[in-house]
């Protein structure tokens, strides 16, 4: 049995906790309860012939006041960077988060999730921005914790790229 540590990173209120809740427990809440510190969850997925247990470290959202403690990132085999499609700044922030992650644990697989696809009409992240990210070689997926759209695929994608290593 293989286990992998994955950290969820992104600005506050982008939906990290909601994505984990949708993925692990198939639930969704509109209420916003900010995460304090770390919340740990796990889910077993099957990738090819392998069962993998994902240990999900849902960290508090990053902002000026609360930098992510690099201690939390240590030993992580993959990252899910999450942005809120309706807030462009959260998408732009991912560059910085990614750089920090690299300096803390080195070059590990990651996937970028642009969340709240159910609010697509209100999105602030346009096709151009998405295209630029893809051009850099990033895997960018659209998700909605609310409807569940793309969530399963997102976690499978990171699991796969971790195992491919």
């Amino acid at each position: 049995m293989i286990q992998k540590k994955i950290c969820m990173l992104g600005s506050f209120a982008v939906g990290k906790t909601s994505l984990v809740a949708r993925f692990v427990h198939s639930i969704y809440r509109d209420q916003y309860l900010t995460t304090v510190g770390v919340k740990i969850d796990k889910k077993q997925v099957r990738v090819g012939d392998n069962d993998v247990t994902l240990i999900l470290w849902d960290l508090h959202g990053e902002d000026e006041f609360q930098k992510i403690r690099s201690a939390y990132l240590r030993g992580s085999s993959g990252f899910l960077f999450v942005a809120d499609g309706t807030r462009r700044s959260t998408f732009d922030k991912i560059h910085e988060l990614q750089e920090n992650a690299v300096s803390a644990v080195g070059d590990v697989p990651f996937v970028v999730l642009v969340n709240k696809s159910d609010l697509k009409p209100e999105w602030d992240v346009d096709a151009e921005a998405l295209g630029a990210a893809t051009d850099r070689g990033w895997t960018v997926l659209e998700t909605s914790a609310r409807t569940g759209e793309g969530v399963e695929d997102a976690f499978l994608a990171i699991a796969e790229s971790m195992l491919r290593r």
């Binding site: 540590k5 470290w57 939390y72 240590r74």
Partner: peptide
């Protein structure tokens, strides 16, 4: 999960 949490607490 307990093991991960324990580590997180220690990190913290």
């Amino acid at each position: 999960m307990a093991s991960a949490m324990l580590t997180a607490i220690r990190d913290f």
